[in-house]
Design a protein around this nucleic acid. Structure first.
Length: 594
RNA sequence: GGUCCGGUAGCUCAGUUGGAUAGAGCAUCAGAUUUCUAAUCUGACGGUCACAGGUUCGAGUCCUGUCCGGAUCACCA
């Protein structure tokens, strides 16, 4: 049981003895602020009515009662309506021993629930960029966190492999490609296909310009331009499974997948299940029938199917086009239904940017109106955009930050910086590669994950490659330093020990660190509940910062008393362990040395 | 225009059921290493928590209004 819970029960007992029945939810305990002495603080304001006394006097009475009935409480002090309670050092030593002895510390027992996390979900017409990186890192981390709290997690990717966008790349490749392939050009497949997507856009724009010059209105020119007409014709041929077009589609998508696989591997993300929209885009039509039968949907004269959500403060939403084909919403209704039935999901989380908030609001509402109660278990992890110092990323203006370029850049910077600091001296080339990779990626991932997902974040290329302060490398470095001490201890034949010696009274800083360690499981639980890796990131930073101060002020191996030395080694080892564990939840590796 | 999200130090961000004097990092300045990794640590500087009301013992946090920024409201996905 965690310490706050424990003390809460004791506080309720004391309060009831003194003043009669109390509402346990009124008993709020918080960490004592640094400037005061104490571990946990009870706010007594809510109980003044029951005690019929002033705040100081009430706090004093409760404190006296708690201290005299609970031997693990060392002391208490009262400031205004705040009762600050301190536990004995031996109590905290026992907490550290318990953490060290628990191999599953930070993990919750299996819940028996199955949850799916869908993330990444790229289009197959261009390479991944910075926005996708945030998506992938969030999805991957949330999956780890949900796993840590005991759920069975299925990581899913829904690849948008069909539609007019891929036809545009295909058409441009046919026209201008001259048979170019990844092998012949040496280009990564996704980048090659992306190049032709850009080529399409350029040719298309040129045509529009020509048409408008000839006096045709711009919106009409957009529809009439030959490039667009041909792309649409290509989509029709694809849907009719025309052998040539279908073959080209398979080939070019294959190039893209090879490219994506490399990017995913570099980022360290993976999936358990990959859906392809070409195989799911027809789903959802039964749901349309169901909705019509139940009178939830209605058909307009032209044959299109709609739902009227104006009573819910929204608009009318199209569910089936007049030609009978489905739209995005139709498919999503279908895939949601399929997944919940196929996997018996207890929860479904979509990692999708906040520009689709409306879509998911409508999705949930429609499913509810159809009577599917599991709609309540659909969660949209809506994350904010990544902006650059010069504003939003715009592919048109060439301000998109490419994922592969960015990762390579980070790793290269990590290597340069490591070399400059002499950190790579005596490393084999393989070790140097591994450390550079770990540090460069750590910097990137931490930079992105430390920010609250729902907030728009700014990505400054210059600042993100900072490796000091609240950064991934700062945390990785602390881990490496602890590991170094542990190695030296082992070389000197000094045992780490598995418990704090009974006669050793912990230093205040050591108590602070143990308190932080004890917080870890609660942080993971909160991160899971809120789908926020940022909570874990900020926690790990706080732990590391605290440890660095401790490390600076107190020597470990030079300590003469074996009992003290063992306690410090034990504490350090546990800090390293939790740092590594927390970083793993973020998808970040930590090095043994750097 | 409707709906949703955001606004905290020069910059990037924390601040979790409303609690004590609002915190970090970066940047700037000043310091610390005969000793376990200085990618570290210490100190200084820096704030009308967008603005105005309200709720109460107490509001960055909850409510209302205003201002500013963003997203969205497609027979695109």
């Amino acid at each position: 049981m965690n310490i706050e819970k424990l003390l809460q029960l004791k506080a309720v007992a004391s309060l009831e003895t003194l003043y009669g029945p109390v509402d346990a939810s009124q008993v709020q305990l918080q960490k004592t602020r640094r400037e005061f002495e104490g571990d946990l603080t009870l706010v007594v304001f809510p109980f003044l009515k029951a005690s019929r006394k002033g705040p100081e006097q009430t706090a004093e009475e409760v404190g006296r009662h708690l201290a005299s009935n609970n031997p693990e409480i060392k002391s208490y002090n009262v400031i205004k309506g705040f009762l600050n309670i301190s536990f004995r050092e031996s109590f905290w030593a026992g907490q550290l021993d318990a953490i060290a002895a628990d191999p599953d510390f930070g993990r919750q027992p299996a819940t028996g629930l199955t949850v799916m996390v869908e993330y990444s979900s790229p289009n197959t017409n261009k390479p991944l960029h910075l926005g996708h990186i945030r998506n992938n890192l969030l999805g991957c981390s949330v999956a780890h966190i949900l796993d840590a709290v005991g759920h069975r997690v299925i990581k899913a990717n829904l690849v948008n492999d069909r539609g007019i966008h891929i036809c545009k790349s295909m058409l441009a490749w046919q026209k201008f490609g001259g048979g170019e392939t990844p092998a012949s050009s040496g280009m990564k497949g996704d980048h090659l296909v992306g190049k032709y997507y850009v080529a399409f856009d350029k040719a298309y724009k040129a045509e529009i310009k020509e048409l408008t010059a000839a006096g045709i209105p711009e919106d009409e020119a957009g529809k009439e331009a030959p490039m667009m007409k041909q792309a649409q014709e290509m989509l029709r041929l694809w849907e009719a499974k025309d052998p040539e077009i279908y073959g080209l589609w398979e080939t070019m998508n294959g190039w893209v997948y090879e490219g994506f696989d490399k990017t995913y591997k570099a980022l360290g993300v993976s999936f358990d299940k990959i859906y392809y929209e070409s195989q799911t885009y027809l789903l959802g039509k039964e749901i349309v029938e169901e909705g019509l039968a139940k009178g939830v949907f209605f058909r307009k004269d032209d044959g299109s199917v709609w739902i009227d959500l104006t009573d819910d403060g929204l608009d009318q939403k199209l569910l089936l086009r007049s030609d009978g084909t489905s739209v995005y919403m139709t498919q999503d209704l279908g895939t949601a239904y399929q997944r919940f039935t196929e996997y018996h999901l207890d929860d479904m989380t979509y990692v999708v940017g906040n520009e689709q908030n409306y879509h998911f609001q409508v999705l949930r509402l429609i499913l509810k109106k159809l009577g599917h109660d599991w709609a309540d278990h659909i969660c949209h992890l809506s994350y904010g955009m990544v902006e650059l110092p010069e504003g939003k990323m715009k592919s048109r203006e060439g301000t998109v930050v490419d994922a592969d370029d960015l990762v390579a850049e980070m790793v290269r910077t990590a290597r340069d910086m490591s070399a400059e600091l002499g950190k790579l001296d005596g490393c084999t080339p393989e070790e140097a590669d591994a450390v550079s990779q770990m540090v460069g990626l750590g910097a990137l991932k931490y930079f992105i994950l430390k920010v609250d997902p729902k907030k728009t974040m700014l990505f400054d290329p210059k600042e993100s490659i900072d490796f000091n302060g609240n950064t991934g490398p700062f945390i990785q470095y602390t881990h490496a330093r602890i590991k170094s001490v542990l190695r030296k201890a082992a070389e000197a034949g000094i045992a780490v020990g598995d418990r704090v010696a009974a006669n050793y009274s912990l230093l205040p800083k050591e108590v602070e660190l143990i308190k932080l360690l004890a917080d870890y499981p609660g942080v993971v639980i909160a991160a899971a509940a809120e789908h926020s890796p940022a909570l874990v990131a900020n926690y790990v930073y706080e732990l590391v910062k605290e440890y660095n101060q401790y490390y600076h002020d107190h020597s470990i191996l030079r300590e003469g008393d074996p009992g003290v030395r063992e306690a410090r080694l034990l504490l350090s080892a546990q800090v390293a362990r939790i740092v590594a564990d927390g970083m793993a939840l973020l998808g970040i590796s930590v090095p043994e040395r750097m």
